[in-house]
Design a protein around this nucleic acid. Sequence first.
RNA 1: GGCCUUAUGGUCAAGGGGUUAAGACGCCACCCUCUCAAGGUGGAAUCACGAGUUCGAAUCUCGUUAAGGCUACCA
Length: 498
Amino acid sequence: MEVRTRFAPSPTGYMHIGNLRTALFAFLFAKHHNGKFILRIEDTDQKRYVEGATEVIYNTLKIAHLNHDEGPDIGGNYGPYVQSERKDIYQKYAKMLVESGHAYYCFCDPDEKEEQGFGYNRHCRNLSKEEIEKNLSEGKPYVIRQKVPLSGTTTFVDEVYGTITVENESLDDQVLLKRDGLPTYNFANVVDDHLMNITHVIRGKEYISSTPKYQLLYEAFGWKPPKTIHLSTIMGRNEDGSVSKLSKRHGSVSFNNLLEEGYLSDAIVNYISLLGWNPKSEQEIFSLDELIKHFDVDGIVKSDAIFDYKKLDWFNAQYIQKLDHETFKNASMPYIKDLPKPIFDKWDFASTLAQSRINKFSDIVPLFAFLSDFKIDTSLFENKKNKLDKLQSRDILVKIFPLLASTEFEVENLNTLLSKYAEHKEMKIGKLMWPVRIAVTAHTVTPGGAGEMLYLLGKEESLRRIHASIDALNVDLGEPLLDMKEQPIEEEEIEFMK
RNA sequence: GGCCUUAUGGUCAAGGGGUUAAGACGCCACCCUCUCAAGGUGGAAUCACGAGUUCGAAUCUCGUUAAGGCUACCA
């Protein structure tokens, strides 16, 4: 029999990462078995209607490459795939249940609060036929409730969690059809999964508690229940150290947020595939096709998993580094908009520096902050590894200034000039590069070395910054300020420039 | 409160009676290096607790504790 799984989100306007993971597993399971993956929109809650929410779902699935075989946007043989369009179907089946004695009309007031915590008091469970007819003919609003057996037990076998048995008396007479005529999720999912021939229901484990009631419904209809594969919950760590279901307070939790921050769709999918599932091998980087190939229910983990942004960062960095440079460059464009204009022209080069240094595209902004954030801190010129103090740094800068002033600012020129000069002066390259890089960026961490930074800043700005650094150093050292344009170039430097 | 589920380092997790209890992220150190990354190498760090079964328990059983879920005319 062909495997058919479904992803049945309600259109909330955004795709929570936990939902995406459910979709992923349902997709992987179906595709692993050469089956069909169906999309069904669960919009039975009118109050929750959000404009454009179904588009978010379509787009997410498309971007993540979780292509469905049937759904509202592409049709299929089991439509309609939007629950609000299936109203009549649910009513028909609800009435069938009433007739067979597995459900009943309930005319109770919706807010007639039943004794707290013990569910509905079953007031209407045993109304006489006459009473029901009377209420109905008076047009009294009603809901239809499931008539759960008062004794005995109900058992189902979950593919992940195993056999689960509950006492029927712990189950309540849940509402099947609401006052507005629409079904509850609890009813609609049973009817639809059966009618759409779903063989494996893959969903979050918050539904385990409700599954016995669904089981009873299938039995009442005389239908064969689909197999269930419940998935653990993706959790987030709170500031106080506690853990709760991943939500906005933990950071970005929607697929779109993550995309906006500059995470790659493939990296996100890869990471969440390993949240609650393990491939029983040491492989961690998986393409979607590989996931399809290796996915197996045996690898599904029962316990909840905490979403770790650090590990997502690592996955994303892996994917970013693998991008061919052209793709990287294009994908990074939206993130350099806030950077000073000149960098835009040199992005071809600058992006090569960025690619191995960022975890996500939004990291580009702080990486290049030195372009506009230039606040000299003379203490940075002291560097013990290169055995440098402020005085030496100042002297080096003073000597290198005229050389730079007469050089064309291209990366190769700059780098050869600097390294040749260091060689000429018989100093370690770092001893020269450090003060130059600091002078020109005022940052200890920069996206590239001194040569690259000079090039990115351009001649004019570079010289201006070096001059300013020399001035600051002199002030600090209590020495007179120099006007670099008037400084005589020493013989040795003249000789070097040959 | 009742019911259901879960429990291996900080995190993802392998391991299902005998193991030096894998691997990855993160962290730390070192190497590389003009900084930071990237890349190397190495290191610290885990079986929630208590009984029981057994020659032997992270592994099986029971209990406790903790966490999560359900207990909606939400899904």
